[in-house]
Amino acid sequence: MNQQKPPLDPHPLSEYVAWAGGRNREPLLGVLKEKLPKDPGRVLELASGSGMHINYFAPHFEHLHFHPSDKDQSVFDNIKQLSVDHSNDNIADPVHLDLTDPTTWFNPGNAGSFSAIFCINIFQVAPISIADGMMECASYLLDDNGFLLIYGPFRVEGQFTTDSNKEFHETLSSAGVSEWGLKDVADLKKAAEKHGLELKEQIDMPSNNFSLIFGRK
């Protein structure tokens, strides 16, 4: 059943975010089934928000242990409640991780300890400046073969790939919040280069989105 699109609202517990998450979770699950390791490991989600994605993915990978995180600690109860509701025993309690504050991720016990990191639908409402922190964080936390997956709509070399993405960008820009709008893949690649990462794959996804997969050079 197709739910009517709610009004644009980037708050992680909003109806709009729930609607968008419901549309993209199956295609994303398909990518993760192809890319996540078959051996036991740890997987980190950045900006977990409500926890809808990590709680949907985790049951499909019983050999992996999932770690939600967010800058906004007010969403933690919702993440934990979803884990209880879905009986997901391979999801850790959420932790505070602020991509603008390295002290929240620089932990010697976690260095190189994650097989994968993913971040979903954040850059259209976040400043591109957090890309530097995201790449530094990923470089520190990922193991040698690990990858960072960033999902969402993006411009490519300054161009909108579809008319609908251009319209979405204009809708975001009209809200009057300076950081809202589609960011450019090129800027993520520049940030990755600074921290020893590179774009390994750019996967076309439904609804004119991309899965961008970064790994070590």
Score class of each variant (00 low, 15 high):
P37V: 00
P68M: 09
L44G: 12
N78T: 14
H63I: 02
L13N: 15
L82S: 11
N88F: 05
S69N: 09
F76Y: 08
N90I: 02
N88E: 11
D93H: 10
H63G: 05
H63A: 04
I79P: 10
Y56L: 04
L44D: 10
P40W: 02
S48L: 06
D89M: 04
N78R: 14
A92F: 08
G51K: 09
P27E: 11
H96V: 07
G21I: 02
G22P: 02
L64G: 04
N90L: 05
L44H: 06
G51P: 06
D98P: 11
P40F: 00
N78F: 04
E15D: 15
S48P: 03
L97R: 14
V43H: 13
Q73T: 15
L46C: 09
L99P: 03
F61N: 05
E15Y: 04
L99F: 00
L44M: 08
H67Y: 04
R25Q: 14
L97P: 09
Y56I: 05
D70T: 07
H60Y: 14
H67G: 00
S87M: 13
E34Q: 13
I54P: 01
D72A: 12
D72H: 05
Q81W: 02
G41M: 08
K71W: 08
D85E: 14
H60M: 01
E15P: 11
H53P: 06
E34M: 07
S69Q: 06
F76V: 07
L82G: 05
V75F: 11
P27N: 11
L46D: 02
R25P: 00
H53M: 10
G41N: 09
P10I: 05
H63Y: 00
D70S: 08
P10H: 03
H67A: 02
S14T: 03
D77I: 00
A58M: 10
E26H: 13
A92W: 10
L36W: 15
S14K: 08
D9P: 07
P37H: 01
H67W: 02
H67L: 05
D77T: 03
D39C: 08
A47S: 14
G41L: 04
K33L: 13
A20S: 13
F76Q: 13
V75N: 12
K71A: 11
M52K: 08
L97Q: 12
K38G: 14
M52Y: 06
P37K: 00
H67Q: 07
P94M: 12
A47I: 04
S83L: 03
G21P: 01
T100P: 06
V84S: 12
S48R: 11
D39W: 01
V95S: 07
V17K: 12
S74G: 09
S74F: 02
H53E: 07
T100E: 15
P37M: 01
G51I: 07
W19F: 15
H67D: 02
L32K: 02
V95A: 06
P94F: 11
W19M: 01
Y56K: 03
A18C: 04
G51A: 07
F61L: 03
V17D: 12
L44F: 04
G22M: 05
L28A: 09
V31F: 12
F76S: 13
D70C: 09
D89R: 12
E62H: 15
P37N: 00
